[in-house]
Design a protein around this nucleic acid. Structure first.
Lengths: 154, 154
DNA sequence: ACTCGTGCGCAATTTTCTTGCGAATAGTGT
DNA sequence: ACACTATTCGCAAGAAAATTGCGCACGAGT
């Protein structure tokens, strides 16, 4: 992971579908070593996937919801079961283990309120051992990017 | 936006760098109409960007923080100023306008706690008119995907 | 049944990817 | 300082993919 690798990542974050030749130009390399570096970054798992940024609304999923979940108890079984179930839920895009009051923060997308109600009833409560659910709806997006900030690894 | 378009999006969400020919195979189309559909989706803004999913830790940004922000007042000027400033902050990956107690929810990445302290002091408080900041650290990732769920637009 | 519009597949050209190979560079130990 | 080794580069050629124009087929509306 040197400076060139980080430049490659930054360029691909802006446009993951640019050709290898453009990328090579951008980072001042010829195409072949450039491609080899990209493959290496994939191999090392630093590049985890090439994905799309979709207009959720146009795609038919206009509602983003953040859900704070507290479990009743924190035994190994309950935690493992909850996390396994969450991974299965296709409406859950992200799930973090959190500090503070709530145990988990979920980012959920649904197409409307009715859809969300269905999600809570059939996908969350059915997991069991949930002490509380605190829902916050996003009704506007100020910023949304995947471009990671510059920083200098010492 | 018919079924084939959604299939294209799903396929590209799983691997945005797959070749057009593979994509065409996946959605049972020949390469040329497939490419034309992709271009149309780009044109319409449904595909907003091609991006990378990066291993934040390997990239040197292991700490994800969620910050709930409340403004002192909600005049047009204060709101516009806050949102404009947030867009400039490279550590802020996402910012939503929220229902509930807080006005905004920010998703922030930093390399350590010291970095976060610096962010709060120099990037957040310096914006001004902020009534309160409530920080929650993510200390584990259960799930993280950009793959949107299946759903049937009626 | 006819016409028009939409979207498909084919095919040829251009562009890009991919791989092996020799050369240059940087780092290491004597 | 020197030689040795390990990386990593650029070049080049064959293979694969993208891109475009064009003709055809299917469906909707008259």
């Amino acid at each position: 992971m040197d400076k060139t690798d980080r430049n490659i990542i930054r360029a691909l974050q802006k446009n993951a579908r640019m050709t290898n030749q453009e990328l090579a130009d951008t980072v001042n390399l010829s195409p072949s070593p450039c491609l080899r570096r990209v493959r290496a970054l994939e191999q090392q798992g630093i590049i985890r996937a090439y994905t799309l940024e979709i207009d959720n609304e146009a795609f038919g999923l206009p509602v983003t919801v953040f859900v704070r979940v507290q479990l009743e108890k924190h035994t190994q079984e309950v935690v493992a079961h909850f996390e396994a179930q969450i991974k299965e839920q296709k409406n859950v895009l992200e799930c973090f283990v959190m500090t503070g009051r709530a145990d988990y923060l979920l980012k959920v997308v649904v197409k409307d309120l009715h859809d969300y109600e269905h999600f809570v009833r059939h996908s969350l409560h059915s997991i069991g051992c949930i002490a509380s659910i605190d829902t916050s709806f996003a009704y506007g997006v100020v910023k949304k990017t995947t471009l990671l900030p510059d920083h200098h690894i010492v």
